Simulated assay, not measured.
Amino acid sequence: MDKTVASAAEAIADIPSGATLAVGGFGVCGVPQELIDALHEQGAGDLRVVSNNCGTDDHGLGILLRAGRISRVTGSYVGENKEFARQYLAGELELELVPQGTLAERLRAGGAGIPAFYTPAGVGTAVAEGGVPWRYAADGSVAVESPARETRVLDGETYVLERSITTDFALVRASKGDRHGNLVFDKTTANFNPLCATAGRVTVAEVEELVEPGEIAPEHVHLPGIFVQRVVEVRKRGAKPVEKRTVREGSAV
């Protein structure tokens, strides 16, 4: 039952090139940075990533992206990552943009064993009708585009069919975890972390505080250990990054 491993490097050592990964985090919040850094050092490439966004240019998944190790992203936001946008527009990266709520439900459904579901999100748009560029060719033409999705009328309303998501591995970060894999997330660091954890066939959790089984009250567990296969304690970071700082005119930062 003890799921702890000695280091982040050991925790991700068997992730091969070509693997699919669900990665927690939202912007720079709740990102499993130690596991990502270890994967960067490990060397796996051609990674197919499912994450809300792909980090920033110098943080999170942006580190793997800049190194050319990610070949496909399923996410809902390009955001502040200029290299992400550049690779996509240059035809170096395949990108499936998904409405954020749909992405969350596709991950949740995958973790729950539900193969597909109907949603009103995207009805009447290119999400349902297809034709969204997933990958560009070097000359700027569309090399791969999204397919049309099945729609169905239920109780007089039209819905689009979305497939669930499961991945080979999931990388998540929690503020606290025990040796059985039970996790606690601090405030908004929960974001996509629990959803990604349930969708991964092998889920690796980095935790800032490792405790013994029983020290987390059952009612305080945010994610049960049944969804987690490996736990590694990582150092607490000092000042955490801020994705975009906005202050009033004339104010000191």
Rank of each mutant, 00 (worst) to 15 (best):
E215W: 03
S175A: 15
T189S: 10
H220G: 03
D168K: 04
D168V: 02
D168C: 07
V202R: 15
T198S: 15
R163H: 11
V207I: 04
V228M: 05
K187D: 08
E215C: 04
S175W: 11
H180N: 12
V234K: 00
T198P: 06
R163E: 15
V228R: 07
L171P: 05
V204H: 13
T188E: 09
A217S: 07
A190E: 06
L223P: 14
V204R: 12
A170C: 09
R235E: 15
R179C: 00
R230D: 13
L183N: 02
I216D: 00
H180I: 03
G214K: 05
L223G: 10
T166P: 06
L210H: 01
H220K: 13
V202T: 15
E212C: 03
H180F: 12
A197E: 10
L223S: 08
R163S: 11
H220T: 01
R230L: 14
E212D: 15
V207P: 00
D178G: 02
G177E: 03
L183T: 00
G200E: 15
R235L: 14
V172W: 06
T166E: 14
L210R: 01
G181F: 07
G177N: 08
L210N: 07
N182L: 04
D186S: 13
A170G: 10
E206S: 15
V234G: 03
P194W: 07
A190M: 08
G181K: 11
K187F: 12
P224A: 09
K187R: 13
T189F: 00
L183G: 04
H222C: 08
L183D: 10
H222M: 07
T167K: 11
N182H: 08
T167H: 14
L171C: 10
E219A: 10
T188R: 09
N193D: 06
A170Y: 01
A174Q: 03
V231F: 14
G181E: 01
R179H: 11
G214T: 01
H220Y: 04
V231Y: 05
T203H: 13
E233R: 15
